[in-house]
């Protein structure tokens, strides 16, 4: 989604108010964002959280 929007990790991190490392960690599956960060990201891309995040393919913690 980020690449489709022609955004760098740094630009997206500034849009949602987190570090570039946080965006990188979310994209690589190393970090599961809080519901509020997921909400901010989904809101930015104008889609639902379920559409933005792949719950089926990810592991339940």
């Amino acid at each position: 989604m980020r690449e489709k929007a022609l955004l760098t990790q740094k630009e997206l991190s500034e849009k949602v108010g987190v570090s570039r490392q946080a965006i990188n960690a979310i994209e690589t599956g190393k970090f599961a964002p809080s519901i509020w960060l997921a909400y901010d990201l989904a809101k930015y891309f104008e889609m639902s959280i379920e559409e933005l995040f792949d719950f089926e393919g990810s592991e339940r913690k």
Binding site: G17, V18, S19, Q21, A22, A25, I26, F31, S34, L37
Partner: peptide, 10 residues
């Protein structure tokens, strides 16, 4: 100047 974000806190 900024606070740590949730990833950095974790």
């Amino acid at each position: 100047r900024k606070n740590y974000d949730e990833y950095q806190i974790s």
